[in-house]
């Protein structure tokens, strides 16, 4: 298991060796703040909760998570370091998991830096802190799901931009499947069972529960399966390149 952590450590250090990580963190916090306080009307709601904050996360992550993960494999392939990495004594899975965990940890750090929002609601009112913790857990799972999908698209191409766009499109599908305007459209011509089945694939549907403070094992399982499936697909793609 050790090589996994060495790879994760190298990858994480890679984020901070250039200004990109700091720029990302600042942008993430600014946009999250803007969406929460201005677009989400945090104060006008008069609620002691973080609905205005978490509600935006599926959309916020849609652009920012693929930006964090797009280079993971495409850059290794473009520069040829993948040959070096995979001929070291590691398994492909260790390499995939190591890289994924490093990026997930970086996103967790970005998320952790939003703690002043949680402090603010606690100063202004008496929120349900259990719901806030559940919201953070859900948000982290959501980021993980998007990131795993980005890993997969990143393994498909040498071009980071292509990886980014593919990831955004795939993640957008996962949002739209359960996005109210879309499900309302579907209801008109599909049976309720079909609508429910489609919505069951959406991150929005499963993220809602977390926001309300419900840690449902089914929602957790959904995100973990998306992560598991996307990382498995990453492995298949990487093996596929080498098998010729």
């Amino acid at each position: 298991m050790k090589p996994l952590w060495i790879i994760a450590k190298r990858e994480l250090a890679g984020y901070f060796s250039s200004p990109v990580a700091y720029v990302f963190l600042v942008i993430f916090l600014l946009v999250a703040g803007f969406l929460t306080f201005t677009a989400g009307a945090f104060f006008e709601r008069g609620e002691a909760g973080l609905g205005a904050f978490f509600g935006w996360h599926p959309w916020l992550y849609l652009v920012l998570v693929p930006a964090v993960g797009m280079r993971l494999w495409s850059e290794e392939r473009r520069s040829g370091t993948i040959e070096l990495l995979l001929t070291l004594p590691v398994t492909t899975w260790q390499a995939i998991l190591g890289k994924f965990l490093a990026s997930w940890l970086f996103l967790a750090l970005a998320l952790a830096l939003t703690f002043p929002v949680a402090l603010t609601v606690n100063v202004l009112g008496e929120p349900d802190n259990g719901a806030i913790v559940a919201g953070y857990v859900g948000s982290l799972m959501l980021a993980g799901a998007y990131l795993a999908i980005t890993c997969m698209t990143s393994a498909m191409t040498r071009n980071q931009v292509v990886a980014f766009i593919l990831a955004v499109v795939l993640c957008l599908f996962l949002i739209l499947a359960g996005f109210n305007p879309v499900t309302d459209l579907l209801v008109r011509w599909a049976s309720p069972a079909v609508v429910d089945a489609v919505a069951a694939f959406s991150v929005v549907t499963h993220f809602d529960g977390f926001q309300k403070g419900v840690l449902d094992s089914r929602d957790l399982l959904f995100f973990l399966s998306v992560i598991g499936f996307a990382l498995f697909a990453t492995g298949v793609i990487i093996r596929g390149h080498r098998a010729g």
Binding site: K2, S79, T81, L84
Partner: peptide
């Protein structure tokens, strides 16, 4: 095995020392 690939690629954002430390750690 010690392997020098044709591309002789190394992680460009690392220092030579950092890269060799990484390689050494991966070799246990």
């Amino acid at each position: 095995i010690g392997y020098l690939p044709e591309s002789a690629a190394a992680y460009p954002d690392m220092t030579v020392e950092g890269f060799l430390k990484f390689a050494a750690a991966m070799r246990g």
